[in-house]
């Protein structure tokens, strides 16, 4: 069973009388343990798709099954629970709380899920993201790469089934981006499902499946374990 399955997703934004199709009849599915990337030019609908997959936004039409549960038509309070139990988010701008230490930032989702703060679990996550010795530092005392690691730790703390990352390396230099991607690969090897939106084609090629979006539609889906025809690659290079 797919951990995420979107069927015929359409998202229309209205600006006055104009209708903008952010997503146009998109079908998308991710199996457990897959590492998927979504690429495409700006305005192609990547973030709109990620937000709908993460239940942060609702589609205009179509359906989305998250871990077998239909999400369309659900109330925000139910979606909060679904997000809390299944999804971890990583953002381009990290969105760390500047007055909280790395450890406290990682702990934050536990406050909202009303789970007991387990010091051992936080240490484990800090270790997992390579910040075992930086837990008591404030975000201002950390580098960009370290801040993104804290954000990844925060996404991991609730033990999610899927990690959704929106341009996670967008604010980082290439060496740091590579390190973050290595971390994602490591997490994926441990069985975590990851969906990453990125502009970085080199990094996207390190994932197992690469979707290319253009004008709200998936124009290609490349299984990188078994590269398909040259046409798909040409399209990707052209759009990216």
């Amino acid at each position: 069973m797919s951990v995420l399955e979107a069927k015929d997703l359409t998202k229309i934004y209205r600006r006055g009388r104009e209708e903008i199709y952010a997503l146009n009849h998109v079908d998308f599915s991710v199996d457990p343990g897959e590492f998927v990337s979504i690429i495409g030019p700006s305005g192609s609908g990547k973030t709109a798709l990620l937000n709908i997959l993460g239940c942060l936004d609702t589609p205009t039409s179509g359906s989305l099954l998250l871990n077998g549960t239909e999400t369309s038509g659900k109330k925000e309070s139910d979606l909060v629970k679904l997000r809390r139990d299944n999804i971890g988010f990583v953002f381009q701008q990290f969105y760390l709380m500047p007055t909280l230490t790395a450890r406290e930032n990682i702990e934050l989702p536990l406050l909202f899920s009303k789970k007991d703060t387990n010091k051992g679990r936080i240490d484990e996550v800090l270790e997992m993201v390579g910040l075992a010795d930086r837990g008591d530092h404030l975000p201002g005392q950390l580098s960009g790469g370290e801040m993104q690691r804290v954000a990844i730790g925060r996404a991991l703390i609730n033990d999610p089934k899927i990690i959704l990352a929106d341009e996670p390396t967008g604010n980082l230099d290439s060496a740091t981006s590579k390190m973050i991607f290595e971390l994602f690969t490591k997490l994926n090897r441990k069985g975590l499902t990851l969906i990453i939106v990125t502009h970085n084609l080199d990094l996207a090629r390190q994932t197992q499946k690469m979707y290319t979006l253009r004008d709200g539609q998936i124009v290609s889906c490349e299984d990188l374990a078994c590269v398909q025809g040259r046409d798909d690659l040409n399209i990707q290079q052209e759009v990216v």
Binding site: G54, L56, E76, V80, F89, F91, Q93, Y95, F112
Partner: peptide, 16 residues
């Protein structure tokens, strides 16, 4: 507001 958005994404409810 963006920070609240992040909080909602990581599991905060409106009530929180």
């Amino acid at each position: 507001t963006r920070e609240f958005g992040m909080m909602k994404a990581i599991g905060a409810s409106g009530l929180d």
